[in-house]
Design a protein around this nucleic acid. Structure first.
Length: 211
DNA sequence: ATTTTCAAT
């Protein structure tokens, strides 16, 4: 179903406030998760669903999403019949913060039991990833290992979200100051987190270069 | 230079 009522769309101000990828995102004590669920119902046939969630009552938004996933993804666990045919799903979500370590663990556990579900995560900001040995960093690597694609949002992703999840009344997405620079900085940071520099590889590279 | 973080009050 592509048509959605305005009430399920995010207000513009809310989207900008919570997704702004500024370095010090003071006061963002909420996290938003905009999702697109793509369901393969036949060899050449897909259906879509989309919406957004935010954390509530101390429950992180990723865990909330897992709670709703049964409703969003009928047939994910099979249809209960003798053949147990499982529908294939791919979910893309755009989160204002990257997941905490606990959510990363819960997600990894979940995904390890649903090989018919592919998940792509876009994040606007990195949550508690400043310290080299932060557990949140470890959580992101865990997700990567289990096959989740994690990417920092770029202009095109904000543009897409604006078009898809925001009650924009035909207004066009307007980038805030520093969007691009912040995105580049966070992308570098995430790639350093996901591909920690391995000295063995470096030595090989140097050897190859004859250094 | 330093600032924040899915609150708690």
């Amino acid at each position: 179903m592509i048509t959605k009522l305005d009430s399920v769309l995010l207000p513009k101000k809310k989207f900008i406030y919570h997704y702004k990828n500024m370095r010090w995102a003071k006061g963002r004590h909420e996290t938003y998760l905009c999702f697109v669920v793509k369901r393969r119902v036949g060899p050449d046939s897909l259906t879509f669903d989309f919406g957004h969630l935010r954390n509530r009552n101390g429950c992180h938004v990723e865990i909330l999403f897992l709670r709703y996933i049964g409703a969003l993804c009928p047939g994910l666990w099979g249809d209960g019949g003798p053949e147990e045919r499982r529908l294939s799903y791919s979910i893309t979500w755009f989160c204002s913060w990257s997941p905490c370590v606990n959510c990363s663990m819960k997600l990894s556990q979940f995904l390890s039991k649903t090989p018919n579900l592919r998940l792509r995560i876009f994040v606007s900001r990195l949550y508690f990833c400043d310290l080299e040995d932060s557990m949140e960093r470890e959580g992101l690597r865990m997700l990567k290992r289990i096959g989740v694609h994690i990417t920092v949002m770029k202009y095109k992703d904000y543009f897409y979200c604006w078009q898809t999840f925001v009650a924009r009344n035909t207004s066009i997405f307007k980038a805030w100051d520093g969007l691009h620079q912040n995105s580049v900085r966070l992308t570098r940071k995430l790639s350093r987190i996901l591909q920690p520099c391995e000295t063995e590889d470096l030595r090989d590279a140097f050897r190859l270069l004859g250094l």
